[in-house]
Design a protein around this nucleic acid. Structure first.
Lengths: 245, 245
DNA sequence: CGGATTTTAGATCGCGCAATCTAAAATTAT
DNA sequence: ATAATTTTAGATTGCGCGATCTAAAATCCG
């Protein structure tokens, strides 16, 4: 060793994550990174190789600090069904409190860099970690009766993975609470063990507290008739989309 | 009028869609567009204003030719429940036959350009058109009994919108047939009116033919025990994601 | 101290980009 | 014909980019 670093590696990595998260890989310039990270261009190259190397290391850090951290924390402390619902509740909360519309970093990376040879198939693996968490938890919940067994744990996990990702996509362009919460609530209803998916009162209180944001109220018969009326009258008109608020 | 155009506007627009679809807006250069469209740079600027104007017109054409066309075609010719299932079947088929991994153009645009002032909130509106198609169809299906009424048409539509989008995200990085079909099948199971979601034999034959790709086989009790075993043994180990093939 | 090694930062390089200039070619209207 | 108008394309412009060069500053080892 000779002259020591004047910056903390993980601190500047967090700054790089901020840049890549907000702007994407291509739209983030070395000058952007240099300014936000508080180090000069050559220091950046000396420490991380090049822009792409910095990007890869940013992704790795994000995964460990955010996605895997969440899975570890919830899976280690909660019953299986509660862990899955809490995971959804956290993602819904994040999606609805994102004024800068940055979305999910992993999702942004997945779409912008799906053909990045350095990422290869590893993005699929990262999403697979979420799916695997769902599958483990659902299988355990089915074993103890807290999750319905009408469908396989594998299929339920696949469906929940789809909803989680779709949820973050939509929240990026339309962060409407009824839309996002309705989406999550309806997907999670597939886990309900009771034949009637509408009564969930027998669950532990702390589940309600943690996941209450995504559970919401019961659907009424009045609403059913209103929805049906929308189409039976004025059949097949030009779509006038509802943006859910 | 004086000298006439030497090219067909819609034909070159289709070529532009190809470019933007494959590479995104930022990564597509005027030279790329000029070459693929078969016209020179100044002709492009003369006809479409600038790169961004061409992009906007490409999106409009894509929506009319692809997304809205599909909704019109299915909603006009099928029973409500069948239209929704056929919509999923078509999207699944597209997602699984995409060797270049281009994904869904609208979805790519939504994520890359979510803050584009010219697109404004209109992307939310485009996704809302899909949601509205789902909602209309589901409400009609609930009215005639072909779709379950346990959850509101609005919520079911929201959930299906999430799955459709999540499906295309995952297919982009992991186009695995079991994964994508399992995801779609499980989401669509929420529409099943019967208490037992596993028997669907009473549906019209043509529904099975159109949507068979996403329906698949019934889940077995053997698989249930296998899935449960995965977690009850070796509890809480480091995620070893399954990429579903 | 003094030689070796690493980090730092200003300046700079070549490149590809979106967009435009200039002017020739093709058409309609008179 | 000829004037007016639009489309066409080669050449070019200014800019921001990723990356590097040069050399000074800071530390460790003997």
């Amino acid at each position: 060793m000779a002259r020591p670093r004047e910056f903390d590696d993980t601190a500047v990595l967090d700054a790089a994550i901020d840049c890549f998260w907000a702007e994407g890989f291509a739209a983030t310039s070395i000058r952007d990174l240099s300014e936000r990270m508080g180090i000069s261009g050559p220091s950046l190259y000396n420490a991380f190789g090049d822009k792409h190397g910095l990007f890869i290391q940013s992704i790795e850090r994000y995964l460990d600090q955010t996605m895997r951290e969440r899975i570890r924390r919830l899976e280690g402390a909660m019953a299986p069904a509660a862990a899955v619902r809490a995971f959804f509740a956290e993602v819904v909360k994040r999606a609805l409190s994102d004024p800068e519309r940055r979305g999910c970093f992993l999702l942004n990376v997945a779409l912008e860099r799906s053909n990045d040879p350095a990422l290869g198939g590893s993005i699929a693996g990262y999403l697979g970690e979420i799916e695997a968490f769902f599958r483990r938890s659902i299988a355990a919940g089915q074993a103890d009766g807290s999750i319905a067994s009408h469908q396989s744990a594998a299929d339920l996990a696949r469906m929940l993975l789809g909803v989680i990702l779709g949820l973050r996509v939509i929240a990026r362009v339309n962060p409407s609470r009824p839309l996002i919460e309705g989406m999550a609530r309806t997907a999670l209803a597939a886990l309900d063990p009771a034949a009637s998916a509408r009564r969930r009162a027998k669950e532990p209180v702390w589940v309600m507290a943690t996941a209450s944001a995504v559970i919401g109220g019961a659907w009424s018969r009045r609403a059913a008739r209103r929805d049906a009326g929308r189409i039976t009258s004025g059949a097949r008109r030009r779509p006038s989309p509802s943006n859910d608020g």
